[in-house]
Amino acid sequence: MNFIFTEEQMQFKDAIKSFLIDECSPKSIREGWDTKKSFNPDRWKGLFELGVLNSNLPEDKGGLGMDQVTLALMVEEMGYAGLPEPVAEQTFLVNDLISLLPKDIGKAIEETYDAGAKYISLAHPLAPNPLFIADSAGLILFDDSQCKFIAKEDLNFEIIASNDPSREIYKINSTNNVISSAENFEELNSAVSARGALMTAALLIGLAQKMIDLSSAYVLDRTQFGKPIGSFQAVKHMLADVAVKIEFAKPAVYRAAYSLSENNPKSALHCAHAKLMCAQAAELACKNSIQAHGAMGYTWEMDLHIYMRKAWSMMACWGNEDRQQDIIFKTLSSTSEELGVLYTF
C-alpha cells in the first residue's frame, strides 16, 4: 500500500497548473463570454503543445499513455482554473474510450482525428448537449442502445444557452451518414458513464477548492465592525465546513481513478462514490462562499460565479448526487457481504 503520488504525477499537475495561471485568468474567461467565443484556439494550441490533449492516448497513437490518476490530477487543475475548453472531455471521455470503441467508429475517429487541431465532441443521455460542436471534427453520440459517430458535416445542430456562459452547448437536430454500432454497447456505456462521473468529480473538487481560496482571500480583505470579517467565528466555521468536505472527497477521486487504471470491477462504484462526495463538497462550497461574500457574491462583477456556474453544470451532468446514490445503493444492496472494513481496497 502506497497511497501517494509519484514525482512524475506531481510534475504533470504542476505544469498544467502554472500554464493555466497564465493562460486561463478570470479576465480571459470573461473575454470569451463577451465575444461569445469561449473556445480559445490559442489556449487550445498551448494545451496541445504542452502534451495535455493527447496525453492519455496510447503511445502507438501518438500519446503518452498517461494513466487515469495523473489525468485526474490534471483535470482537478482544469476545474480550479475554470477552463472553458473541453480538455477534460476530450481526454477523460474520448481518448480514454478509443480502445473500447467499435472498430468502425474508432477508425472513423482516427481518420478525422488530427490530434491537437481538432476536437471530438460527445453526447450521452447523462450529458445530452454536446460542447463546442462548431470547433469539432465530429460527434460521438450515445443513445439508449447504440453508440454512433457522426462527422461534423453530417450534423444538423443549433446552439443553445447554458447557464454557464463558458459552456457552448448544442442541440442535435438530425444526423446523416451515421456510423453506428451496438456491439459491446453495454460495456462501452458503463465505461463512459463511470468516466463521466469521475471527470465531473475531479472538476468539481478543483472548483470547490477555488471557491474556498477566493472566499478566504475575500474575508481577510473585507472589514466590518473595524476588523476583517474572517475573524468572525460564524464566517470561519462556514469555510472550515467546506474544507472538511473537500478533504474527504479528494481521496475518493484518486482511488476511483486508480480503480479505472487497474480495470477494477468495482470502478463504477468507486466513480459514483467520487462524484457523490465531490458534488456535496462543491454544493457546500457554492453556498458558503457566496454567503461569505455578502452582496458582492451575488454580483456578476465578482469572479466567484465563474466557478459556481461551472460547478452547477458539473453537478448536473453525468449523473447528479441522487443518481450516484442510487448506483451506490444498488451495488451495496446486491453485494452486501462485500461492504465494509475489508473491501475498501
Binding site: F3, I4, K250, A252, H273, L276, F329
Partner: peptide
C-alpha cells in the same frame, strides 16, 4: 436509503483519507 449510502460513502472516504495520510507519513 440515502442515509445508508452516506454511511458507506463517508466511512469509505474516511478510510481512504487515513490511508492517504499514513502513506504520506511513511514517505
Amino acid at each position: 436509503q440515502a442515509k445508508i449510502v452516506e454511511a458507506w460513502a463517508q466511512s469509505e472516504s474516511y478510510a481512504l483519507s487515513i490511508y492517504h495520510t499514513a502513506s504520506k507519513m511513511l514517505a
